[in-house]
Amino acid sequence: MTLTFDGTVIVPAADPDDGERTARALQGHLEPSSTVIAVNVIEKSGGGIDKAPMEQRKDHAGDIFERIRGVLDESPAAVETEVLYGTDVVERIFEAAREEQADAVVFNAREGNRLAEFLTGNVARRLVKEASVPVVALPQTEP
């Protein structure tokens, strides 16, 4: 049985490599009726000092989307991109999924150690544990 997405999927990406890796893993699962909405969440500090200047973070999101489009331009799916803003990355991803009436949130889990997971809040683990829409973790693919 082959998994295919024939509706709308939200594809969060944290950096250009993550976006490209996820797009490659997703590419074979798309149909002409698929819509991929690639998102990058710019985490706001909620009143504190932000991690980087806003313009720099928007440019970073643009680099992510360029890499995703570079892979998915050959796919049969429609590809959209959106920069999201929020104080909680996972909550904002699921909010976007509800807004877009997405069928699923699809991601490619990055390798990491427990310390990295602890320091970053382990977004992948939270995506699965706090899911308000179906969540699909795609298997790792070779570059």
Rank of each mutant, 00 (worst) to 15 (best):
M1S: 11
L3V: 15
L3C: 03
T4N: 11
F5T: 01
F5W: 02
F5D: 00
T8W: 05
V9D: 01
P12T: 04
D15A: 10
P16L: 13
G19E: 03
G19F: 06
R21I: 02
R24A: 03
L26I: 06
Q27E: 08
Q27Y: 04
S33P: 03
N40E: 03
V41L: 07
E43L: 04
E43T: 07
K44A: 06
I49N: 05
D50V: 05
D50I: 07
A52H: 14
A52R: 15
P53F: 14
E55W: 02
R57E: 13
H60Q: 10
I64Y: 05
R67T: 07
R69C: 02
A78L: 08
A78R: 13
T81Q: 14
E82C: 05
V89N: 00
V90K: 00
E95P: 04
A96L: 14
A96I: 14
A96S: 15
E99H: 13
E100S: 11
Q101E: 15
V106M: 01
N108W: 05
A109Q: 15
G112L: 00
N113L: 00
A116G: 12
L119W: 14
T120F: 09
G121R: 03
P134A: 11
P134D: 11
P134T: 10
V135N: 02
T141N: 08
